[in-house]
Design a protein around this nucleic acid. Structure first.
Length: 561
RNA sequence: CGGGGCGUGGCGCAGCUUGGUAGCGCGCUUGCUUUGGGAGCAAGAGGCCGGCGGUUCAAAUCCGCCCGCCCCGACCA
């Protein structure tokens, strides 16, 4: 490719609207342009990167026996009604009507379509297992698109779906996907962890996420450096340090005006971990009191798994249920469902008295009041690993892939069944496995970029070699560059020749911005016999080759990388 | 959806408080010079100041409504 013909509009300055490093650099280096919130145009450079990521994914998917297919993005509402998600999902799904008045949706994902297909075409245990995958556009009307390409309303996703006769076979496909995903992300050159993730409404099913550490990420994971325990904080568990508890023995104390944890602990001169923080929540089945230690944070996603969907009570509702203002509520004397975090069990705490201006000290959960004890708090950095007691580390991550055991969630309601060896009709056991290629590319930028720009891993770089011709007007330089360019091209190297008649400074700066792994410079020094300069973008090491040996030297450099 | 911020040539911004000529840097065009780190000089092109309405002799500037974009939060099956 010649730079004079390549469409790669660059910017010297950061775009005003970008926050994340990958977002800034993708715009500055001419990889993408934003059409509207959460909608991106992939320019030639960006498209080349995405294509390379997708090619890696496809190679590894094919290697585990998955078969590529393609499915409609425009889908009849009917199949979503069958699976039950038409009603469950809210504004996040694009809905429309066709000219005949039929309800349609734009697919956020393809479980319904693929299950519809399986329901029609899979009949016998002899047809199983199957693994089908697609790499296609998906649409979600995101409440808040953000961070450039990381969270968009339209995005490409590789999704595979497995169909098995039983749980054991599903487990096998699940493991195969784990292997494939590990290879994919290693090849793509990103750092990542596989962590336990929240299967959400999948019930008891298991799920994992592949997480690339980056401050631009939206998720946080808890990691144990000792035993390898790794989980999304949405479900991560840990042992908090236990404070020195006082003697039990309930006693009401006046705490005038002290409502918040800080105010009460300050007023009574105790540390916050000796208080219980109570929250009143309203569910479909009535009010629920949820309790965590004063120094801890409630985690809604964990609580939701126990009590279902809920909302915070309004001040009037608090007054009505507890008889006191929010700052003074507590578990004693309340005849409603109570959920207490596990770390409260066996301790002695200060709680609200359900009487304005008063708290009660010396309260022992489980004795002085009953509650369901469960893990409903957010783990914190430095708490003890639930498996090995080492100190947990928390890290922000970009979710680049996820894998789910779906079981019969879709095959059941949509009638995807097969006949087993005994002639028994059984639902197909499914799994689904996603990767977002744009997120992989963005994660690579986030993890590797330096102050000059992008630093691509060779495997997903738009070009392997960026050949800078310093003075195109000099015929000797031009001839030398052209020759090397053709040699590299004919040996299958992706090479970009910058033969534009512009200042060399611009060429070097843009080469660094663009981030191709190898930069080759041909200028007057090379012509004078000083050798062809070959610099690695990552680390910046430079070496020289004789003109005749340059192509071979570069090729062997690329092979090492 | 709640809170906050911002919309002015292609990009980044100033001007708005205190109404009266639309400005800077980068980029772009042409010419000459330059040619190993985002060049120099000169001459140019390019803007219904997000939209609609109001106040006023007069609105980028004041007021109202709307739209768009970004950030924080909620949400993300």
């Amino acid at each position: 490719m010649l730079a004079s013909r390549l469409f790669f509009p660059t910017h010297k300055e950061d775009p005003a609207e970008a926050e994340a490093i990958s977002h800034k650099l993708m715009i500055r280096a001419g990889l993408v342009r934003q059409l509207a919130a959460g909608l991106y145009i992939y320019l030639p450079l960006g498209q080349r990167v995405i294509t390379k990521v997708i090619n890696i994914i496809h190679e590894e998917m094919n290697a585990i026996g998955a078969q590529e297919l393609s499915m409609p993005v425009l889908q009849p509402a009917e199949i979503w009604q069958q699976s039950g998600r038409y009603g469950e999902i809210g504004a996040e799904m694009f809905r429309l009507r066709d000219r005949g008045g039929r309800d349609m949706v734009l697919g956020m994902t393809h479980e319904e379509v693929v299950t519809w297909l399986a329901a029609r075409e899979i009949r016998s245990y002899r047809d199983l297992p199957q693994v089908w995958y697609q790499t296609q556009t998906k649409l979600r009307d995101e409440a808040r698109p953000k961070s450039g390409v990381l969270r968009t309303r339209e995005f490409i996703m590789k999704d595979s779906y497995s169909f098995d006769a039983d749980e054991g076979a599903l487990e096998k496909n699940y493991r195969l996907h784990i292997q494939a995903y590990n290879r994919i992300f290693e090849r793509a050159g990103v750092r990542f962890y596989m962590v336990e993730s929240d299967p959400g409404m999948m019930g008891g099913a298991t799920a994992h996420e592949f997480m690339a550490p980056s401050s631009a990420g939206e998720d946080e994971v808890a990691l144990c450096p000792a035993c390898g325990y790794a989980a999304n904080v949405e479900l991560a568990r840990a042992e908090p340090a236990r404070p020195q508890f006082p003697e039990p023995g309930m006693k009401e104390v006046a705490t005038p005006g002290a409502r918040t944890i800080e105010e009460v602990s300050g007023f009574l001169n105790v540390t916050p971990d000796l208080l219980i923080k109570s929250l009143l929540l309203i569910t479909e089945r009535g009010p629920v009191l949820a309790m965590v230690r004063g120094d801890q944070e409630m985690l809604e996603s964990k609580l939701a798994r126990i009590i279902g969907s809920h909302r915070l009570a309004e001040p009037e509702e608090v007054k009505e249920v507890t008889g006191a203002e929010a700052g003074f509520m507590g578990p004693l004397g309340l005849d409603i469902r109570k959920i207490a975090d596990q770390s409260l069990e066996g301790g002695v705490f200060i709680v609200g008295a359900n009487r304005d201006g008063f708290h009660i000290i010396g309260v022992a959960p489980g004795q002085d009041f009953q509650a369901e004890f469960a893990d409903i708090r957010r783990v914190r950095q430095g708490e003890k690993c639930p498996h090995c007691n080492a100190s947990l580390k928390l890290e922000r991550c970009i979710e680049i892939g996820n894998i789910f055991k779906l079981g019969t969630k879709y095959s059941g309601p949509m009638g995807a069944t097969y006949l087993d060896e005994q002639g028994q009709e059984r639902p197909v056991i499914m799994g689904s496995y996603g990767i977002g290629p744009a997120r992989v590319a963005a994660a690579a930028i986030e993890q590797l970029a330096d102050e000059k720009g992008i630093v691509w891993p060779l495997s997903i770089a738009p070009f392997a070699v960026h050949l800078v011709l310093v003075q195109p007007a000099d015929s000797q330089q031009a001839a030398m560059a052209e020759k090397l360019y053709l040699e590299l091209k004919s040996s299958g190297v992706d090479v970009l020749l910058d033969e534009r008649a512009i200042s060399p400074g611009v060429k070097f700066a843009e080469a660094e911005l663009m981030g191709c792994p190898v930069r080759v410079t041909i200028g007057k020094r090379a012509v004078a016999g000083g050798g062809v300069e070959v610099a690695l973008r990552r680390g910046g090491e430079e070496q020289k080759f004789e003109a005749g040996e340059a192509a071979a030297g570069i090729a062997s450099l690329l092979n090492q990388a």
